[in-house]
């Protein structure tokens, strides 16, 4: 039932040409090379070390793997991670 609702919502958003990330509460990831990543609309920090940052986003986890990672700022919705980013992975 929920899946049907989700499909219907996507079709409606697509038909009305609305921004999916806002309506569906999806995260937005913005990279600057491999040395900076800004994640908007995250749901919290799951794990944080200098080689791995795991963020909770709607429906999954985003793993950022790299070296010398650190958080330049963190607020309720957005986070900026700096360092050498090697891999970004989505885990359902």
């Amino acid at each position: 039932m929920a899946k049907r609702k989700q499909i219907l919502a996507r079709k409606l958003i697509s038909a009305m040409d609305l921004p999916e990330d806002v309506i569906l509460d999806l995260p937005q990831l913005k990279f600057i090379g491999n040395m900076e990543l800004v994640v908007e609309n995250h749901k919290g920090l799951y794990e944080y070390t200098s080689s791995l940052v795991k963020l909770t986003v709607k429906g999954c986890l985003v793993s950022i793997v790299g070296k010398n990672l650190w958080i330049q700022f963190i607020g309720r919705d957005d986070i900026k991670i700096k360092g050498r980013i090697d891999k970004v992975e989505f885990q359902q």
Binding site: G44, S50, W70, I71, Q72, I74, G75, R76
Partner: peptide
């Protein structure tokens, strides 16, 4: 500490230069 950090940011506070 991640849980503490989430609690802080959820309440609308802003942190920067966070280093583990």
């Amino acid at each position: 500490l991640e849980i503490i950090l989430n609690r802080i940011t959820d309440s609308g506070l802003y942190l920067w230069n966070v280093e583990r």
